[in-house]
C-alpha cells in the first residue's frame, strides 16, 4: 500500500474519451479526404495541407509560449484539425504566404484571442478562410483542374471553374438549366470528387467515410450533418419544384461545393456548436437554410462557410433557449 492514500470525490471511475482522442480522431477522419485530394490535385495538395497544418501548429505554439505565456497545448490535435480544415477550404494553387495569413487569422485571431481551445465563438478554420477570401479574392477563386500534372508544384496548372461557379455565372446570364448539361458534371464525378474545387471539399465519398468514422467513434452525433443536409435539400428542393429551369436540383446542391465538408466537419465542431441535441438541430437547420439561401440568391457561389459562421454567432442564444428536456418537469402524473 502506498504511504498516503488518495482521497478524491466520486466518481472514481473515468471514461476513456479525452480531448486529445477526440481531436486526433477528427484528424483520422480527415485522412480519406486528404488522400482523395492528393489523388486529384497531386503534390500541390500535399504542399497546401502540410504548410497549413505546420503554420497552424507553429503559430499556436508561438502564441502560447511567447505571447500568452500559458501551458502549451499546440500538440493536442486541435490546431492540426484547424490546419487541415483550413487547407481543405482553399484552392490547391494558393501561394504559401497567403496560407500563412489564413493560419495566423485562424489561430491568432479566431482562437487564441478568445482564450484558446473551447472559448472561440467562431470556427477558426472558417474565419481563416473568410479572411483569405476577403484579402486574396483572385487566388482564392482560381481552381486548378483535377487529374493533371500531378507531380508538379506551383500555381501554373490549367485552371477550371467549380461547378457552382459556372452554374451561377450561367444563370446570371439568363440561361436555362436544361441547356447547361455540359456545365454540370455527372453525379458520379461529384460523388468521387473529379471536379474543380477546394483541396478537401470535392470528394463526397471520402468525406462520408470520415464522417461515418466519427459517428462510429462517438465523436459526433448524427444530428448536425443529417439535419444540415436535410434542411438544405428541403430549401433548395422547394425552389427546384417551383421552377426547375432556373434552379438546379437539391441532389446537385448537396453534392457540389463544400456542403459535405461543412456539414460533417465544420458544423459539427463542438466548440462552436450548441450543447443540447435540440439546439444542435436548430443550429443545423438554420445553417442549411442559410447556405441554400446564399447559394440561390447571394453573390457567392458557395455559402457554406458563411452560413456556418453566421450560425456560430447564434450559438449562445440557441444554448439559452433550447435546453435539454428535464427529468420530472412537464409531467402530470396524478395518482
Amino acid at each position: 500500500m502506498s504511504k498516503q492514500l488518495t482521497v478524491s470525490l466520486s466518481p472514481h471511475e473515468k471514461g476513456d474519451l479525452s480531448v486529445k482522442q477526440i481531436m486526433w480522431g477528427v484528424v483520422i477522419a480527415l485522412i480519406p479526404t486528404f488522400l482523395a485530394s492528393v489523388y486529384f490535385y497531386g503534390l500541390n495538395s500535399l504542399r497546401v495541407v502540410f504548410l497549413s497544418v505546420t503554420f497552424c501548429i507553429v503559430s499556436e505554439f508561438l502564441i502560447q509560449e511567447f505571447i500568452l505565456k500559458v501551458k502549451v497545448t499546440a500538440f493536442d490535435g486541435s490546431a492540426a484539425v484547424t490546419g487541415l480544415l483550413l487547407a481543405f477550404n482553399v484552392p490547391s494553387g494558393i501561394p504559401w504566404w497567403q496560407l500563412l495569413v489564413g493560419a495566423i487569422a485562424a489561430i491568432g485571431i479566431a482562437k487564441m484571442a478568445f482564450g484558446g481551445l473551447g472559448n472561440n465563438p467562431f470556427n477558426p478554420a472558417l474565419v481563416g478562410r473568410a479572411v483569405m477570401l476577403a484579402s486574396f479574392p483572385v487566388q482564392m477563386t482560381t481552381w486548378p483542374e483535377p487529374m493533371q500534372k500531378i507531380w508538379t508544384f506551383g500555381a501554373d496548372a490549367v485552371t477550371t471553374a467549380t461547378p457552382l461557379t459556372s452554374l451561377k455565372d450561367a444563370i446570371r446570364e439568363g440561361k436555362r438549366i436544361v441547356d447547361l448539361a455540359d456545365l454540370i458534371p455527372s453525379y458520379f464525378d461529384l460523388f468521387i470528387g473529379n471536379v474543380g474545387g477546394c483541396v478537401g471539399g470535392i470528394s463526397v465519398v471520402a468525406i462520408l467515410l470520415g464522417g461515418f468514422y466519427m459517428l462510429y467513434k462517438k465523436i459526433i452525433t448524427y444530428h448536425i450533418p443529417v439535419f444540415f443536409l436535410l434542411s438544405m435539400v428541403a430549401f433548395t428542393g422547394v425552389f427546384w419544384l417551383i421552377d426547375p429551369d432556373k434552379y438546379v436540383d437539391p441532389l446537385f446542391h448537396i453534392l457540389a461545393g463544400g456542403v459535405m465538408l461543412g456539414a460533417w466537419f465544420m458544423a459539427t465542431d463542438m466548440v462552436t456548436g450548441p450543447m443540447s441535441i435540440k439546439g444542435q438541430i436548430v443550429f443545423a437547420v438554420g445553417g442549411g437554410i442559410l447556405c441554400g439561401a446564399i447559394r440561390l440568391f447571394g453573390t457567392y457561389p458557395d455559402g457554406v462557410a458563411y452560413a456556418i459562421l453566421i450560425m456560430n454567432a447564434f450559438v449562445p442564444l440557441i444554448d439559452k433557449y433550447f435546453k435539454p428536456k428535464r427529468f420530472g418537469k412537464e409531467v402530470n402524473y396524478e395518482q
Partner: peptide, 8 residues
Amino acid sequence: ENCIRCGK
C-alpha cells in the same frame, strides 16, 4: 483541460 463544449 478547457471545456471544449462537446455537450457529452
